[in-house]
Amino acid sequence: KSAVKALFDYKAQREDELTFTKSAIIQNVEKQDGGWWRGDYGGKKQLWFPSNYVEEMI
């Protein structure tokens, strides 16, 4: 599983989504079709976030 870095702040709209700030590192990313991926951040595990808010880390 990979890690991504947030390009923008994102505030969860639902309880199954992540809230994060710009430059946050989201771990254990599971990529899905449809523009939403799952990952771990801030003590939350495998919640959804919009993939267009992040960049992949190499």
Rank of each mutant, 00 (worst) to 15 (best):
K1R: 14
K1V: 13
K1H: 13
K1P: 13
K1I: 12
S2D: 11
A3F: 14
A3H: 12
A3C: 15
A3L: 13
A3W: 14
V4M: 11
V4H: 08
V4I: 04
K5L: 12
K5Y: 10
A6T: 07
A6W: 00
A6D: 04
F8Q: 12
F8N: 09
D9Q: 06
D9S: 10
D9T: 07
D9W: 06
D9A: 10
Y10Q: 01
Y10L: 00
Y10F: 07
Y10R: 03
Y10G: 01
K11I: 15
K11C: 15
K11D: 13
K11Y: 14
A12T: 04
A12N: 04
Q13E: 11
R14I: 05
R14K: 14
R14F: 09
E15N: 10
E15Q: 10
E15G: 09
D16A: 06
D16G: 11
E17V: 02
E17T: 04
L18A: 01
L18M: 06
L18F: 04
L18D: 00
L18T: 02
T19P: 04
T19W: 05
T19Y: 03
T19A: 07
F20P: 01
F20W: 02
F20G: 00
F20K: 00
T21C: 15
T21I: 11
T21F: 12
K22W: 06
K22M: 10
S23H: 15
S23I: 03
S23G: 15
S23L: 11
S23T: 10
A24L: 04
A24F: 03
A24S: 13
A24G: 08
I25M: 08
I25R: 03
I25N: 02
I26H: 01
I26C: 04
Q27C: 15
Q27M: 14
Q27T: 15
N28L: 04
N28S: 06
V29H: 01
V29P: 00
V29F: 02
V29E: 02
V29M: 00
E30Q: 14
E30M: 14
E30W: 13
E30A: 13
K31D: 04
Q32C: 15
Q32G: 12
Q32P: 12
Q32R: 14
D33S: 13
D33Y: 10
G34P: 06
G34E: 07
G34W: 04
G35F: 10
G35C: 14
G35E: 10
G35S: 09
W36A: 03
W36S: 04
W37A: 04
W37T: 02
R38C: 05
R38D: 00
R38F: 03
G39N: 00
G39R: 00
G39H: 00
D40T: 01
D40H: 03
D40Y: 01
D40P: 00
Y41A: 05
Y41T: 04
G42L: 09
G42I: 04
G42V: 04
G43S: 09
G43Q: 08
K44P: 03
K45W: 10
K45T: 14
K45S: 12
Q46T: 05
Q46L: 05
Q46W: 06
Q46R: 10
L47S: 12
L47R: 08
L47M: 12
L47G: 15
L47H: 14
W48I: 05
W48Q: 06
W48T: 04
W48G: 04
W48A: 05
F49V: 02
F49L: 03
F49E: 02
P50S: 03
P50L: 06
P50R: 05
P50Q: 04
S51G: 06
S51E: 08
S51F: 07
S51R: 10
N52T: 12
N52S: 15
Y53H: 10
Y53M: 12
Y53G: 03
Y53L: 14
Y53Q: 06
V54L: 03
V54Q: 01
E55V: 14
E55P: 00
E55A: 11
E56W: 08
E56S: 09
E56D: 13
E56I: 10
E56A: 09
E56R: 05
M57K: 06
M57F: 14
M57W: 13
M57H: 11
M57L: 15
M57A: 09
I58P: 14
I58L: 13
